[in-house]
Simulated scan of single mutants.
Amino acid sequence: MWPKTILGLLLGLLISISLIVNLNLILPMSEPALLLLGLIVAFPAWAGLVVWSYAHPDAKSAAMSLLYVLIPSLCLNTILLLMR
């Protein structure tokens, strides 16, 4: 139970941050609107990812599922930042 909790908290936080960075780089909005959007979307996304980590039978499968989301999101972050 604790390994899935720690994985959900840490990897979920990284995924949440990465998704918000992707949204901020893709959407053509003003900075205050993007900040508000990030604040509104980040916490529910993070909480959902923590709950999703509990849906797996063990920590290894939870880590693999979270990494399958994190790695493409980080690649998209890199591409969008290089295109900026």
Rank of each mutant, 00 (worst) to 15 (best):
A45P: 02
A45S: 13
A45G: 08
W46T: 06
W46I: 09
A47Y: 01
A47D: 00
A47C: 00
G48P: 03
L49D: 04
V50D: 01
V50K: 04
V50E: 01
S53D: 00
S53W: 00
Y54N: 05
Y54M: 10
Y54D: 04
A55C: 13
A55M: 14
A55L: 14
A55S: 15
A55D: 10
H56I: 07
H56T: 09
P57C: 12
P57T: 12
P57M: 12
D58P: 08
D58T: 10
D58E: 11
A59C: 02
A59T: 01
K60Y: 13
K60D: 12
K60R: 15
K60P: 04
S61M: 15
A62E: 03
A62L: 02
A62P: 01
A63D: 10
A63P: 07
M64F: 13
M64H: 13
S65F: 03
S65M: 07
S65D: 10
L66N: 05
L66M: 08
L67M: 14
L67P: 06
Y68M: 14
Y68I: 12
Y68E: 10
Y68K: 12
Y68G: 10
Y68N: 13
V69Q: 11
V69I: 14
V69L: 14
V69N: 04
L70K: 02
L70P: 02
L70R: 02
I71A: 13
I71F: 11
I71M: 12
I71L: 14
I71P: 08
P72C: 09
P72Q: 06
S73K: 02
S73A: 13
S73N: 09
S73V: 08
S73W: 00
S73R: 01
S73L: 09
L74F: 07
L76E: 05
L76Y: 07
L76G: 09
L76W: 09
T78C: 12
I79V: 14
I79K: 04
